[in-house]
Design a protein around this nucleic acid. Structure first.
Lengths: 341, 341
DNA sequence: CTGTTAGCGCCTTCAT
DNA sequence: ATGAAGGCGCTAACAG
């Protein structure tokens, strides 16, 4: 299939017997043009259905007004929300967006960066893959002075702006809430331990315990690989503990949902026998039975802030010095932690 | 913030004291080059971290190897899956993807098309907004010979390839299943009536009823505007009917979930008092209590097929004649329709 | 007020 | 085996 021909300025120029620059000027509404000529040109352009070729423009001015976005997974509701926020606000400021997913692989992340850079995006917004444990590709971007920001899944040592949630704070909120509900022995189900969020959420969890004079108990801090099997395995281990913890805080909602489902299948009652909480406030959290207590993270807002700050820097409205924006989370208490009535 | 300078062929040429054309040839591994020169150039390019400027290339060959995608909502799990499929397979064939969302507004859909076309995408994949009730913008694309396909939310009169699900078939499957479970008076909750899927799913619903010798009963075919309030209103109406239907088939899962939640709040028991089914197999459908019978639509697969066919046409591997690909859906029976044991 | 020229980065004749 | 020239579509500096 051949793509149909697009009308160019040259063609309008020929048809009207004027030079290409005149066309260019008319279409930019330059003041130094004879009004009549301008009128004719604009009219003809419309009639011929002229559309400027952004490619050519971009090549000339060495700016594409396009941003690259890399997320681990588009199908995650949270990242989809971020993208939505980025998209909406980029559009508002006249920027396009190219979106890539790393599928949680560092190799794809690197490949994505290559393509986006080759496509001459003006800047990047990146959320790191789960696998990303070395950062040459990011330092490389930095050294080549390609502006970028990190959001949600960040790496602290890279000197660029970062937009994150107060993960420790959120974990503190939810743990504190469970303690208030009467829990006294709360397990923590962590994701892979080198993940930023695993660490941060553990921090908040421990802080809340500490405030209640409860010391860390290593045997009830579990690690899952985030697969269904891994999550069920942890659920089983906790269910079989004697004595059993009276509450469980899972690092992310999907883990909590898997745990809940498994417990239901073996007859462990939530919240009567054990409280359960997650993190992120996925759509599923609200509809499981019992509804899951969790911590909401406004993804759309994160996207909005990330892109707004990036564009401010790009357009000189904000200083180039990297800043760190920390968004607060909100506790969403639901039935799964409701011990009192 | 200023973007760092990108190395160009010109610079390599200067450094090595050869012409730009030689660089170009070396980098394309042209055979008519002195091996030693070639080696030197490739080495230097690597050392200088040269990256070809896709923009310039595209301008030259009038092809960007970029596809535009327009979906109603990125945050919908189904569309996110489609995007994921499109993305993965476009990448495999060396194409980039620019994604836009219409947010279900026709104006944004039109604006998205404009931007993508201006950005010189080679082709488009479009899923129409809910609002889209006139189609000049699509006929315009067609007339300008810009290749595109429609997927999921399509318009039948436009002579381009379309990828859809067998919506009528899926609705038939689920209605038939409810009949087999013993339901004899099944209500249908439709979305806005001019939506393609509203119509198609009603078709399948009626066909299944017909096969059981049950005639259409207008009073139990309800229409919702798909908002929470609308869905609850319908749920209330059905709950208050005397006699009450013994089954309800909702056009999409979110409606069914809202209905279920409302019924729970007023003590209507599913499936004991009334069966309930949805359509799409959203993640939420599996985790509500009781788990929701639904029809699964493989979004990733739809994306894969859509982009593969489009690229086949684009690259002359498939005929330009529009075709219609219809994907079959799969019934996912769950507890919400389980009358027998 | 308008045309000519040059150049963004790349590639492809054509000439040597 | 290599260089020079021209052009993709557009804009901006310069020259009338």
């Amino acid at each position: 299939m051949k793509k149909g021909h697009q009308v160019t300025m040259k063609e309008i120029a020929k048809k009207l017997g004027v030079s290409v620059s005149t066309i260019s000027r008319a279409l930019k509404d330059s003041p130094e043009l004879h009004p009549e000529t301008k009128r004719k040109i604009v009219e003809m352009a419309k009639e011929m259905n002229y559309q400027p070729n952004l490619l050519a423009q971009s090549l000339r001015i060495s700016r594409t007004k396009t941003l690259g976005v890399i997320v681990p997974e588009i199908t995650s509701h949270f990242f989809a929300s971020c993208i939505s926020g980025i998209q909406d606000f980029a559009t508002k400021r006249g920027y396009n967006v190219m979106i890539c997913q790393s599928n949680e692989f560092i190799d794809q992340e690197i490949a994505n960066i290559r393509t986006l850079v080759a496509s001459q995006v003006d800047a990047l917004l990146i959320s790191l893959s789960r696998e990303t444990n070395h950062f040459e590709h990011l330092f490389d971007l930095y050294n080549r002075e390609i502006p970028f920001v990190l959001f949600d899944r960040v790496q602290e040592d890279i000197p660029v702006s970062k937009i994150t949630f107060n993960d420790a704070g959120g974990a503190y909120q939810v743990t504190h809430h469970m303690l208030e509900q009467g829990c006294r022995r709360i397990a923590y189900v962590s994701g892979p331990e080198d993940l930023y969020i695993s660490k941060k959420r553990k921090e908040g969890y421990l802080k809340a315990l500490d405030e209640y004079g409860i010391t860390e108990e290593e045997s009830i801090i579990k690690v899952t690989d985030l697969t269904l099997e891994g999550n069920r395995k942890v659920a089983k281990e906790i269910a079989e503990m004697k004595p059993r913890p009276d509450g469980v805080f899972c690092m992310i909602d999907p883990v909590a949902v898997d745990v809940l489902t498994y417990w239901k299948s073996i007859g462990v009652k939530v919240p009567e026998e054990i409280c359960l909480a997650g993190f992120t406030d996925n759509p599923t959290a609200a509809v499981v039975e019992p509804p899951l207590t969790t911590v909401s993270q406004p993804g759309y807002e994160m996207g909005r802030l990330a892109v707004s700050h990036l564009l401010d820097q790009l357009e000189g409205l904000a200083s180039d010095d990297p800043i760190s924006i920390v968004l607060e989370t909100t506790l969403v208490p639901r039935k799964s932690t409701q011990k009192k009535h």
